[in-house]
Amino acid sequence: MADRVVRVLVGKPGLDGHDRAAKVMARALRDAGFEVIYTGIRQTPAQVAQTAVQEDVDVVVLNNLTGAHLEVFPLVVEELKKRGRDDIYVLATGVIPFEDVELLKEKGIDEVFGPGTGPIHIINWIKEHVLGEKQGE
């Protein structure tokens, strides 16, 4: 059996046009050995969710820098549920204030990586949760 390769979708729901982080991070995730699919900007939650389903990814990394995360990220979770795939991990990244972290988790986001969190934390989280590999700090 071939090695288990992690598949990640980097999704940008909402009208946000900031794509520098998403593009750079897509490359960083590739360098970590993951297969990475990127939706591009200005996606609806349904677009992101259908992509995740078709590509059968392990993780969806949502990214939004313009303050729509509280409204838009939970809609992606809902869309995934509607499609029978709420088993896929959903992570939140971007300019997310601390007080929103719990609110997002209540709405089905598995983890939140706010301003200043380097990609290594996200990569380690994914390895730990998808591959079951404990990562040393």
Binding site: D3, D31, G33, V36, Y38, Q54
Partner: peptide
């Protein structure tokens, strides 16, 4: 690394959501 950027899909991402279109 075995990793990959799978970039082809992005060119027809705007056609989704659509139940008659499947991309892998």
């Amino acid at each position: 690394t075995g990793g990959a950027l799978l970039g082809d899909r992005i060119r027809l991402q705007h056609l989704f959501p659509n139940s008659n279109l499947f991309f892998r």
